[in-house]
């Protein structure tokens, strides 16, 4: 993992912790829904928080393709580049 990736991972963990109101430990392989026990509302609040943090909009269909933290990192990087 590069330094940028590590920073991104830390930021995602922080955002997730804020939404779930508990500390969260994640790796790029963590499955966001099954490993962390997020229901659909928590997923929605999490994606809204990520959108705000990076000033991006994640279209719903793209969010559906995200399973792991690594998928999310790739998507954030792609959307930020597009901006």
């Amino acid at each position: 993992m590069t330094g940028t990736d590590e920073q991104l991972l830390g930021e995602i963990a922080e955002t997730l912790g804020g939404v779930l109101e508990r500390p969260v430990e994640i790796t790029p392989d963590t499955n966001i829904v099954s490993d962390l026990g997020l229901d659909s509302i928590a997923v929605m609040n999490f994606s809204l928080a990520i959108e705000d943090r990076y000033d991006i909009s994640i279209p719903l269909d793209q969010m559906a393709d995200v399973a792991t933290v690594s998928d999310l990192m790739t998507m954030i990087q792609t959307l930020r580049k597009a901006n």
Partner: peptide
């Protein structure tokens, strides 16, 4: 087929 974005 349009991308969908939600607001709070």
């Amino acid at each position: 087929h349009a991308p969908v974005v939600r607001f709070r």
